[in-house]
């Protein structure tokens, strides 16, 4: 056995994990090598020091704090029970929001209208990309078509904003009920995260950017409102 081998085996040796032959080889090397004896001594001291670390005493008020948080969680549960049906209706109502499709359509309509306004024939790919708006684009006064398309777009944006705002207003109490069971620091982090996402919505330009910001905000609230799904079973 050489020094490198001993360094690798010293743990197993000191833990008594080696068989007779292995242990004997270690002892043999330790008898003849002062450096490795030092190493083994240090490992022994380290183990003793770790085993003798003074115990960390749980503070006396710890149970009361846990009990209070469990109580807050139960109160939140009871509120959630009442709101659960409201929540599932909300989700069903949110599903058919037509924003992304409608926005693609109206953006296409604008592009098409602009092209027609310039008197150029819409290229084939563009027409293919926006078949939905063909009737609108074909309407006689081109200027009107453009204005309508812009109006429609603004309406859609307002409608989507309104819907998302309502979703948030319904999710927020659910999320707050969940957050009430958290430790103060986590609750603070929630407030911070929420504010950041609300700010993102405020500063986002209308359209897909704002839509993404809304989605980010609502899905964050949704996750919190439904509670953290931590696997408590066998896994992590």
């Amino acid at each position: 056995m050489n020094c490198r081998q001993l360094a690798e085996q010293v743990d197993a040796y000191l833990d008594g994990d080696l068989d007779e032959v292995g242990a004997s080889a270690c002892r043999g090397h330790l008898r003849t090598c002062a450096a490795c004896r030092d190493l083994a001594d240090q490992q022994t001291r380290l183990r003793a020091a770790l085993a003798e670390l003074p115990p960390a005493e749980p503070p006396a008020h710890l149970w009361a704090a846990i009990d209070a948080r469990l109580g807050a969680a139960e109160i939140a549960d009871s509120r959630r029970g009442a709101l659960a049906t409201g929540w599932s209706r909300l989700v069903a109502w949110l599903r058919p929001v037509a924003w992304p499709v409608a926005m693609v359509g109206s953006a296409g309509a604008i592009a098409l209208a602009v092209v027609q306004l310039r008197g150029a024939a819409p290229s084939q790919p563009l027409a293919l990309r926006a078949p939905v708006v063909a009737p609108a684009a074909a309407a006689p006064p081109v200027r009107l078509a453009l204005r309508d398309a812009l109006d429609e777009r603004a309406d859609l944006e307002r409608e989507a904003d309104g819907r998302f705002r309502q979703v948030v207003s319904e999710l927020l109490p659910l999320a707050r009920a969940e957050v009430a069971t958290w430790a103060p620091r986590r609750a603070q982090a929630f407030a911070h995260d929420l504010e950041r996402r609300e700010q993102a919505v405020l500063v986002a330009s209308p359209g897909h950017v704002r839509e993404r910001a809304w989605h980010d905000l609502t899905s964050y609230l949704e996750r919190v409102a439904l509670g953290e799904q931590v696997a408590m079973g066998g896994g992590r």
Binding site: L62, R69, P184, G233
Partner: peptide, 18 residues
């Protein structure tokens, strides 16, 4: 202390799924 609280809250809340 805060982490220990968190652990026990999760223990009691999670016992149903244990």
């Amino acid at each position: 202390e805060e982490v220990a609280q968190e652990v026990f809250v999760r223990v009691f809340r999670g016992l149903a799924g244990f």
